[in-house]
Computed example of a mutant assay.
Amino acid sequence: MRVAGSLLGAQTTRFEQVDPLLPPAAPPPDGQVLTAALPGGDRVAGVVTHSTFEPGTATTLWSALQLWEMHPLVGATGGAGMDVLLREWARLQARTTAGPDSACLLTWPSRDTVAAQPLLAHGFTPLTSLAVRHFRAGTPMRRAPQAGVTVRLATPSDLETVLALELAELAYSALVGAAVLRPDAERVKRATVVRHFEQGDPMWLAERDGVAVGLAHCRLMDVVADSLIATRLRPGRWGYVNCVSVADDARGSGVGSELMAVAHHELHSRGATGTFLYFNPPNPLASVFWARQGYRPLWTSWELRPASALR
Rank of each mutant, 00 (worst) to 15 (best):
R190F: 09
W108F: 05
L105R: 02
P306E: 00
P23N: 07
M221C: 06
Q293L: 15
F53Y: 15
L61H: 08
A10K: 06
R296F: 14
P306G: 01
P235F: 03
P140Y: 07
F53S: 05
G123K: 00
L106G: 01
R292I: 08
L205R: 02
S287M: 06
R195A: 13
M221G: 02
S63Y: 09
A26T: 11
S269A: 15
A154L: 09
C243I: 15
V33A: 12
F289D: 01
A286N: 03
A98K: 00
L65V: 14
L67T: 15
T155D: 12
L205N: 03
A291R: 15
G56R: 11
Q146E: 09
S173I: 10
A263P: 13
G271Q: 07
A64L: 05
S129M: 09
P109E: 02
H50G: 05
E169V: 11
P20S: 06
A131N: 03
T52F: 13
G200N: 04
S257L: 13
L170V: 14
D201H: 13
A178H: 10
R234H: 10
P284S: 07
A116F: 08
V74K: 00
T96D: 06
L153M: 11
L22D: 01
V223W: 01
L92W: 07
L34W: 02
V162M: 08
V132N: 05
P306A: 01
V213S: 02
V176C: 03
R2H: 03
R195V: 09
S269W: 13
V33G: 05
A307C: 07
L67W: 10
P109D: 02
V132H: 06
A26C: 09
V288K: 13
E69Q: 14
D249R: 04
V262M: 11
R251M: 08
T128L: 13
L127F: 06
A80N: 11
P235W: 03
W290M: 04
Q93E: 04
L73Y: 04
R195H: 12
F124N: 00
E198W: 09
H122Q: 03
T113R: 10
D222H: 08
L106Q: 00
H50M: 07
P284L: 04
V176H: 05
L85D: 01
M260D: 11
R133G: 06
D209R: 09
V151A: 02
V188D: 02
V84K: 01
A164W: 09
E16C: 14
T12Q: 05
R232I: 07
L277S: 03
L181A: 15
D112G: 07
G9V: 12
P126R: 00
N283R: 02
A216M: 10
